[in-house]
Amino acid sequence: MNAEDKQKSDTIISTKDLNVWYDDFQALIDVTMDIPEKSITALIGPSGCGKSTFLRTLNRMNDLIESAKTTGSVLYRDQDIFHSSMEVSELRRHIGMVFQKPNPFPMSVYDNVAYGPRTHGTKSRAKLDDIVERSLRGAAIWDEVRDKLRQNALGLSGGQQQRLCIARALAVQPDVLLMDEPTSALDPISTTKIEELILQLKENYTIIIVTHNMQQALRISDGTAFFLLGDLVEYGSTDIIFSTPSDKRTEDYITGRFG
């Protein structure tokens, strides 16, 4: 293993015995998982198995849900994200999120992308212009919107909106991107574009993506984690999970026997 490979397999997020409850219902059970840096990790599993819950725990978006309770630990670059010294706002700047349904704000394209940097204190026009362009280029949507920066983002197509949301997330220079079924609301062409984009983003970002689409997981991910009823059943390299899974349930799910 050369130095670069070593670098690449460094763990960026590590969960240990992570449990999440919604009131009395346990949505995640003792999930222990190490996610390597600058890679794409796919989370798969039938509906309701806890994929979104897991994702939303990583940037503490689950804090917003009254009934949610969490035990166990999540380390982001060896820092406990639940520790009192961890600023949620900083955590979310480092760990960005893209949602299932594109959710641009009802503002101009420019203001959407500038929202994050402005939140974290960037005020200068020149700097913002620069960040906006860079982020839009990064999300492979610059050419389509360069003449529409002042137009309302809600006027864009669904696929464009989703790439805008990715640009918006990139604008705060995150480290990790959490994506919750980012293409499930999109047409096949937009989906392909976003998959290509995700593969490019892997160069600089760690990506954790929830998907219901087995082909998608296979096409883009390096590692795959299979969840079932709150359990992390199996986690390993995507090639292995999809060719020789060690758990019968994984195999059943992948071959479409349930879910």
Binding site: N59, M61, L64, V88, S89, E90, L91, R92, R93, G96, M97, F99, K101, N103, P104, F105, P106, Y115, G116, T119, H120, C165, R168, A169, V172
Partner: peptide, 17 residues
């Protein structure tokens, strides 16, 4: 829409913002 609030929170915005 709740999704606006989520989108803003996910970018690190505080409640008041």
């Amino acid at each position: 829409p709740q999704s606006y609030r989520e989108g803003a929170f996910a970018l690190g915005a505080g409640k008041w913002r």
